Simulated assay, not measured.
Amino acid sequence: MTALGTVFRPQFAPELLRPMAETAEAWELDQLWVWEDCFSESGIASAAAALAWTERVRVGIGLLPVPLRNVALTGMEVATLHRLFPDRVILGVGHGVQGWMGQVGARVSSPLTLLREYLDALRALLRGEEVSVDGTYVKLDKVRLDWPPSDPVKVYAGGIGPKTLRLTAEAADGTLLVADETVDGVRRIREFIDHEIIAPLHVATGPDAVERLRRTSPDVGVAGDAETVAAAVRELVDAGADTVILQPTGDEPDPVGFVRFVAEQVRPLVP
């Protein structure tokens, strides 16, 4: 069965996270995702809170920008979440927005090199291995997590562009796409990626849905009722997506209601 989720966007006030998480839990939605956009909410803090307020829904972090975070710290935080909430955390990492990375003095000259080094080191740390590496960017000297995850952890990587996507195909356990990707784009990506693909989808519903979607993403996405949205989800699944994340607009007037719409009305229409 296709996994279906939605997003707590960084344009939403932090205090909206709890009712959105509790609604996702109550209506048995598969996944709720949080972001770590500069300079909004923390991905790890948001995920920890959402996990603590719920018991079943899986929480995705999409994504942690690797230039901003030492890989050992990410390993420690993710391992802690997995020990506290087994099999409920979905970890995504990626380049981050380069302009934001420049603002905080973390921009690197080769984001691809950093991401590959980071993925290799992070996956090894989460396997409980002792890691020593002297890379261009990632440098660890006999680092081992005291409390690695009890079970294997998948590390997903996000990105756009053929070079990054080919890197995720080689070095990650799954690939997180962007909501601006078209159905044809997902189909082309599926040709060279043989692991799980998570595809976000811009969605707007309600009386002003078309106008809000046009402001957010004039070229891709779907506006309409549950059947219209479900049809767009099925198209992405047919193109090769394993999980579809319905992404509300940043000016969604009722984020909690959007979660309920996805769980109550769209979920039953997606096989």
Rank of each mutant, 00 (worst) to 15 (best):
M101V: 00
M101Y: 00
Q103E: 14
V104M: 11
A106S: 13
R107V: 09
S109E: 15
P111L: 01
T113L: 06
L114S: 03
L114G: 00
L115I: 08
E117S: 02
E117P: 01
Y118Q: 03
Y118S: 03
Y118H: 12
Y118M: 04
L119A: 05
D120H: 13
A121P: 01
L122W: 03
L122G: 00
R127Y: 11
E130I: 01
V131T: 12
V131A: 01
S132L: 14
D134F: 13
G135K: 06
T136R: 15
V138I: 15
V138D: 00
D141F: 13
D141T: 11
D141Q: 14
K142Q: 15
V143K: 10
R144H: 05
R144G: 08
R144N: 09
D146R: 14
W147A: 13
P148H: 08
P149T: 10
D151I: 05
K154P: 13
V155Y: 03
Y156K: 13
A157D: 11
A157C: 15
G159F: 11
P162A: 13
K163E: 13
L165S: 01
R166W: 06
V178C: 06
D180H: 14
D180V: 15
D184T: 09
D184P: 03
G185K: 05
G185M: 05
V186W: 00
R188G: 12
H195Q: 11
E196N: 06
I198S: 12
A199R: 07
P200M: 08
L201Q: 13
L201R: 08
P207C: 01
D208Y: 05
V210K: 15
